[in-house]
Amino acid sequence: MYRYKLILSITAIACVFVLMSGQKISAAKDNSGADISGLGSAIVKQAFDYYRGVASISVAEMTIHRAEWERTMKIKAWTRGVHDSLFKIISPAKDKGNGTLKKGDEMWTFNPKVNRTIKLPPSMMSQAWMGSDFSNNDLAKSDTIVKDYTHSVTDVKEKDGLKIFFIESIPHPDAPVVWGMLHFKVREDGIMLSQGFYDEDKILVKELVTTDIKMMGGKLFPAVWKISKQDEKQEYTTIKYLELEFKDSLPSRIFTRAGLKKKIR
């Protein structure tokens, strides 16, 4: 009857954080030299692998902006590989301690006030969590993004001495993706500068732009991620990294329901 988007909290950015927990910089050169579409795939793969890694711990500030309203949250996140992630709200104080655990396809959320852990039904997982403009559908993992799309380099430009690849990605006809096309801008060192999401008529729906590239956790990393809807310019969400640390591994107990309930310092 009244189906509108459930705006819970932390879960949404799951994917963003997972993508970001990158570690080793895979050498673009390994894959270069292939034909033009192979090059496209290689660059996209490299860009996604750049953020992907074994494990990370980070603190970020997320701001959801609407025409008449704005809200900022501080979130701490632990990620391990692409499967496991845990998020906890640090502020605002009212929401402190709320957390979400994601393991593969399953998701739990914990609320300290009612002291309950709830497993989310799949229908809710697919929605735009936490009212941000990020959603699970958008931010695919590197293996599926390479598999589901044909990537081709359409242009190469140079800025500040670094090459920027413009990549157009068209999904395979049967790929389970909602988009009709993706556009990537990837720097030659593997940092993704932007990602555009287009519908089947090749009209831009929303766009992710990263800025403020600086050394974080031992490598260059864009500290600010902003996603905005094309139809409503007043609506956007930004994530600003305050702390970021990459690890070779994190203990499994973090990614358990007990870990979800554990109080945050």
Binding site: S123, S126, V178, W179, D199, E200
Partner: peptide, 13 residues
């Protein structure tokens, strides 16, 4: 079965 259907701009149960 109940499902969740979506395209680039819309989604619904």
């Amino acid at each position: 079965v109940s499902t969740y259907v979506s395209n680039a701009r819309h989604s619904t149960g």
